[in-house]
Lab assay of single mutants.
Amino acid sequence: QVALSRTQVCGILREELFQGDAFHQSDTHIFIIMGASGDLAKKKIYPTIWWLFRDGLLPENTFIVGYARSRLTVADIRKQSEPFFKATPEEKLKLEDFFARNSYVAGQYDDAASYQRLNSHMNALHLGSQANRLFYLALPPTVYEAVTKNIHESCMSQIGWNRIIVEKPFGRDLQSSDRLSNHISSLFREDQIYRIDHYLGKEMVQNLMVLRFANRIFGPIWNRDNIACVILTFKEPFGTEGRGGYFDEFGIIRDVMQNHLLQMLCLVAMEKPASTNSDDVRDEKVKVLKCISEVQANNVVLGQYVGNPDGEGEATKGYLDDPTVPRGSTTATFAAVVLYVENERWDGVPFILRCGKALNERKAEVRLQFHDVAGDIFHQQCKRNELVIRVQPNEAVYTKMMTKKPGMFFNPEESELDLTYGNRYKNVKLPDAYERLILDVFCGSQMHFVRSDELREAWRIFTPLLHQIELEKPKPIPYIYGSRGPTEADELMKRVGFQYEGTYKWVNPHKL
């Protein structure tokens, strides 16, 4: 086992960053958080920038500027975001240094004079007029057009580079997404736009490419001749908990499936790229999406959770019991969808996408189930092999396979070949997804960000279904809070070829 401390991990990262040409360590950078008073800024962006600063992973002359409508001070920003920093008493001095680099400007999102004030403020910072500028839009999409237009007109660096990070949702359907994309691309070049999907920053999602293309053993079996089906799962054990009003506007397909799960599907299904260059990788992902037809209604199961009468606390409440959810809402909190990649490698292999709230566990994984062994000599005792990439929690890679049961006879039983990170790298604290992705933006690497043509294809696949749901308002199937979801989803999976045995229990190697 390799035991690495946080300091050692960050030392390795620093070495990698400083050796590259793309990370300008000594240049002045300004990180501007648009929507600095909001939840995302408070819980994710400010803490992430602090962790990067604490670990010495930001360029040395980096300033952080918050911008929002609320009249706040840096002290206010500190008060609301610091509880999420997880700072230790030993880091007190470092924390003071961090907040000394912070400033805040209040202004409207659609007022040109406010942006001119913001620009004057940035120019007044040390070497601010020639600094590289990175704008993070932690804002609702309704203000994107006004904000990007004003940034472009008043706040661009004339000497350094300018980059803009856009948070999902990128529209509600193909038409609104196209409108937003066309607007942003009329102001910024594609190499300046970073559409963030934080799932692409997760260690195991990034590991998929290495697993596939750096190991000879997987190449020959990664196709329709050997793989019976692919299941991509995202499960949350909690409901909307008072935030249903926002969720109800989008629903589970827009929230998770059309982005996170579809991105994971691309990494499983794509061909080997010409290189690890950002556009070479994204070219292959677009090719996969172009091979997927629009979702067919007979390959869809929609569910909505109801309270568990035997549960406790939140578990007793259904989705419609959330006071922020519109009365009688038919918005799905669970969806199972089957897609097919219609190309030579994957023809006929079902890709089953499942996601839901208020389920029995927290889990995100990719599961490849292989065909049955031909010419069975073990009297149907063999179960199908599976390769599982567990994204969260407890990152893991393992192969479910058959071995001989101890004893006199040739009785096979299920076991696993474990390729888990935790076994080799004991207690290594890896940077989280937002840390990686923000560092990628500083480096100018777009590999783990969504390109406009990729986004367009993703919406093309799901828009007809979303429009049909909005028009017909089908009643989702009720499922109990804390269950596996509607049984109809299991029946759909069985119908397209997935075999669920229920006889195997994964042993978490992190707890051995």
Results as ranks from 00 to 15, higher is better:
residue 485 G to R: 01
residue 314 E to F: 07
residue 499 Q to D: 15
residue 326 P to N: 02
residue 476 P to Q: 02
residue 316 T to K: 10
residue 305 Y to T: 00
residue 309 P to V: 12
residue 442 F to K: 01
residue 330 T to M: 09
residue 290 K to G: 05
residue 429 K to L: 14
residue 438 I to K: 00
residue 481 Y to S: 08
residue 300 V to E: 01
residue 479 Y to I: 01
residue 422 G to F: 09
residue 381 Q to A: 04
residue 430 L to D: 11
residue 446 Q to G: 11
residue 424 R to V: 12
residue 275 S to V: 04
residue 281 V to P: 02
residue 467 H to T: 11
residue 424 R to E: 13
residue 396 A to E: 15
residue 265 L to W: 00
residue 364 A to Q: 12
residue 501 E to L: 02
residue 376 D to C: 11
residue 317 K to D: 09
residue 282 R to Y: 01
residue 285 K to H: 12
residue 463 T to W: 07
residue 459 W to A: 11
residue 424 R to G: 12
residue 303 G to E: 01
residue 417 L to C: 15
residue 365 E to D: 09
residue 334 F to L: 04
residue 374 A to Y: 10
residue 268 V to E: 01
residue 265 L to H: 00
residue 348 G to F: 01
residue 370 F to D: 00
residue 408 M to D: 15
residue 326 P to S: 14
residue 504 Y to E: 15
residue 510 H to D: 12
residue 362 R to S: 14
residue 266 C to M: 09
residue 327 R to T: 07
residue 450 V to A: 13
residue 497 G to S: 15
residue 267 L to T: 13
residue 394 N to W: 14
residue 313 G to S: 09
residue 446 Q to V: 04
residue 459 W to G: 14
residue 393 P to S: 04
residue 310 D to V: 05
residue 300 V to C: 11
residue 447 M to R: 05
residue 311 G to T: 10
residue 346 W to L: 01
residue 463 T to P: 01
residue 423 N to G: 11
residue 319 Y to M: 02
residue 285 K to L: 05
residue 297 A to Y: 06
residue 498 F to V: 15
residue 509 P to M: 15
residue 347 D to G: 15
residue 278 S to N: 14
residue 293 S to L: 07
residue 510 H to K: 10
residue 460 R to E: 03
residue 428 V to L: 12
residue 260 H to L: 15
residue 346 W to Y: 01
residue 300 V to A: 08
residue 453 D to Q: 03
residue 459 W to Y: 12
residue 346 W to D: 00
residue 500 Y to D: 15
residue 483 S to C: 05
residue 505 K to G: 11
residue 351 F to V: 02
residue 323 P to T: 10
residue 281 V to E: 02
residue 380 Q to L: 12
residue 325 V to I: 07
residue 402 M to C: 09
residue 367 R to H: 08
residue 335 A to N: 02
residue 258 Q to A: 13
residue 409 F to V: 14
residue 293 S to M: 04
residue 313 G to D: 12
residue 262 L to A: 09
residue 258 Q to R: 13
residue 458 A to V: 12
residue 509 P to N: 14
residue 316 T to N: 05
residue 509 P to W: 07
residue 372 D to R: 06
residue 402 M to P: 04
residue 298 N to F: 06
residue 326 P to W: 09
residue 489 A to C: 12
residue 267 L to S: 14
residue 428 V to H: 10
residue 255 D to S: 13
residue 445 S to N: 10
residue 293 S to E: 05
residue 349 V to M: 03
residue 298 N to C: 08
residue 289 L to G: 00
residue 398 Y to T: 12
residue 292 I to D: 01
residue 387 L to T: 03
residue 480 I to R: 12
residue 337 V to G: 15
residue 495 R to Q: 13
residue 305 Y to E: 01
residue 324 T to K: 12
residue 299 N to C: 08
residue 397 V to A: 13
residue 352 I to K: 00
residue 320 L to F: 07
residue 425 Y to G: 13
residue 443 C to H: 07
residue 502 G to A: 15
residue 447 M to Y: 13
residue 323 P to A: 12
residue 364 A to G: 10
residue 337 V to L: 10
residue 269 A to K: 01
residue 302 L to P: 01
residue 448 H to K: 07
residue 352 I to H: 02
residue 321 D to A: 09
residue 450 V to H: 15
residue 349 V to N: 01
residue 487 T to G: 04
residue 316 T to R: 05
residue 311 G to H: 05
residue 485 G to D: 00
residue 258 Q to D: 04
residue 479 Y to C: 01
residue 273 P to S: 02
residue 475 K to Y: 06
residue 335 A to K: 01
residue 469 I to L: 06
residue 484 R to D: 14
residue 339 L to E: 01
residue 326 P to M: 12
residue 435 E to V: 10
residue 328 G to D: 13
residue 344 E to Y: 11
residue 485 G to I: 01
residue 362 R to C: 07
residue 289 L to V: 04
residue 436 R to F: 12
residue 441 V to D: 00
residue 295 V to M: 11
residue 284 E to M: 07
residue 353 L to E: 01
residue 441 V to Q: 01
residue 395 E to P: 13
residue 398 Y to N: 10
residue 354 R to T: 10
residue 282 R to N: 03
residue 414 E to S: 14
residue 389 I to A: 08
residue 466 L to F: 12
residue 384 R to M: 09
residue 458 A to W: 13
residue 328 G to K: 06
residue 309 P to H: 04
residue 366 V to M: 13
residue 330 T to F: 07
residue 422 G to K: 04
residue 284 E to A: 12
residue 434 Y to P: 11
residue 484 R to G: 11
residue 264 M to E: 04
residue 487 T to V: 13
residue 398 Y to C: 15
residue 405 K to E: 14
residue 334 F to E: 01
residue 496 V to H: 11
residue 353 L to G: 01
residue 511 K to F: 12
residue 364 A to S: 14
residue 336 A to M: 06
residue 481 Y to C: 08
residue 361 E to N: 15
residue 292 I to K: 02
residue 508 N to A: 10
residue 376 D to A: 11
residue 274 A to I: 04
residue 310 D to Y: 13
residue 507 V to R: 12
residue 438 I to D: 00
residue 511 K to I: 13
residue 398 Y to P: 04
residue 473 K to M: 06
residue 322 D to I: 09
residue 448 H to T: 15
